[in-house]
Simulated assay, not measured.
Amino acid sequence: MGSDKRTRLIEAANKLIHQQGFNLTTLADIARESEVPLGNVYYYFKTKEEIGSALIEHRANFYRGMIESWNRLPDPKQRLAALIEMVSGERETLAQSGCPIGSLCQELHKDGGPLADKSASLMAAMLSWAEQQFRLLGKEKESPDLALHVVSVLQGASLLTHTFRQPDLIARETVRLKKWIDSL
Rank of each mutant, 00 (worst) to 15 (best):
M1Y: 12
K5C: 03
R8W: 10
R8L: 04
R8A: 09
L9T: 01
A13H: 07
L16H: 05
L16S: 03
L16V: 11
I17T: 05
H18Y: 02
H18V: 10
H18T: 15
N23H: 06
L24Y: 11
L24T: 10
L24R: 13
T25P: 07
T25M: 07
T25R: 03
A28M: 07
A31W: 04
A31I: 09
A31V: 08
R32P: 09
R32L: 14
R32D: 13
E33Q: 11
E35T: 14
V36P: 06
P37G: 14
P37R: 12
L38T: 11
G39M: 11
G39C: 01
N40T: 14
N40Q: 13
Y44H: 15
T47V: 03
T47K: 01
K48M: 04
E49C: 01
A54I: 09
L55Y: 05
I56Q: 06
E57I: 10
A60Y: 12
A60H: 12
Y63I: 01
Y63M: 10
G65I: 01
I67F: 09
I67V: 15
I67D: 15
I67N: 15
I67Q: 15
W70S: 05
W70F: 15
N71E: 14
N71F: 03
P74R: 13
D75A: 08
K77V: 05
Q78D: 13
Q78C: 07
L80W: 08
A81R: 09
A81T: 14
A81S: 14
A82Y: 05
L83M: 12
I84Y: 11
E85P: 11
M86T: 11
V87D: 06
V87N: 01
S88M: 08
G89A: 12
E90D: 13
R91W: 00
E92R: 02
T93D: 15
L94M: 09
L94D: 00
L94Q: 04
G102K: 00
G102L: 00
L104G: 01
C105F: 02
E107G: 11
D111K: 05
G113I: 10
G113W: 11
L115W: 04
A116H: 12
K118A: 13
K118N: 10
S121W: 09
M123W: 05
M126R: 10
S128V: 07
S128Q: 13
W129P: 11
W129V: 05
Q132P: 03
Q132V: 03
F134V: 09
R135Y: 02
G138C: 06
K139F: 15
K139S: 15
E140W: 08
K141A: 15
K141Q: 15
E142I: 06
S143C: 06
A147G: 04
L148S: 11
L148R: 14
H149R: 09
V150R: 02
V150D: 04
V151D: 05
V151S: 07
S152I: 04
V153W: 01
V153H: 08
G156I: 05
A157V: 03
S158R: 02
L159F: 12
L159H: 07
L160D: 03
H162D: 01
T163Y: 09
F164W: 10
P167M: 06
D168S: 08
D168L: 01
D168F: 05
L169E: 00
A171M: 02
E173S: 01
T174G: 00
V175I: 12
W180V: 07
W180H: 08
S183P: 10
S183H: 07
L184Y: 12
